[in-house]
């Protein structure tokens, strides 16, 4: 079992060479790729690609927030560069996708590809949607249309 642990990360066996044991005390499989076991882990994908790093299906986690003026969707996309991300908002569905096709150079991970969609509430001012990428977190800020903002109602 312990020796097998090394293999799953092995790219041409290198991880196996470097790492003897991986989290000896932990058998839990924690992943930031999602909270259900049905999510496809990129690792599994790499391995199923017979050790090559074919573009992996990767499902970033998303968190959704609201404040008075906006909705905010936060996606975890570590290592992904700004110009690799596409964002689309259509019919109240927000979709982000990203792709890297070349092999990893020094300091970069290699190929990946993913898409994640979330439903967003109606009443978003689509022309004013903004996105910000920092520390591997993509934040998409979607302003509410004027009529949807909370309003103070005067009691007469």
């Amino acid at each position: 079992m312990e020796t097998n642990l090394n293999l799953k990360f092995g790219k041409e066996g290198m991880a196996m060479q470097l790492i003897r044991r991986d989290d000896p005390t932990l058998t839990r499989f924690d992943s930031w790729f999602g909270d259900t076991w049905n999510d496809i882990h990129p690792l599994t994908q790499f391995l199923e690609g017979l050790g090559t790093r074919a573009p992996a299906a990767w499902r970033p986690t998303v968190e959704f927030y609201e404040d008075e003026e906006n909705y905010h969707a936060q996606f975890e996309v570590p290592g992904v560069k700004k110009d690799e991300i596409d964002i689309e908002l259509e019919n109240a569905v927000l979709t982000i996708s990203a792709k890297r096709e070349e092999q990893g150079d020094e300091g970069r991970q290699s190929r990946f590809a993913f898409t994640r969609s979330v439903n967003v509430p109606d009443g978003i001012d689509a022309d004013k949607v903004k996105a910000h990428l920092e520390d591997g977190i993509l934040t998409v800020t979607m302003p509410k249309q004027e009529g949807r903002k909370p309003r103070a109602i005067q009691v007469n």
Binding site: D23, P24, V62
Partner: peptide
């Protein structure tokens, strides 16, 4: 409104070979 992340902390131990 919706959360998926289950922790704010990460921990990894690797025994080098």
């Amino acid at each position: 409104l919706h959360r998926e992340r289950r922790s704010d902390s990460y921990h990894l131990e690797l025994q080098l070979n």
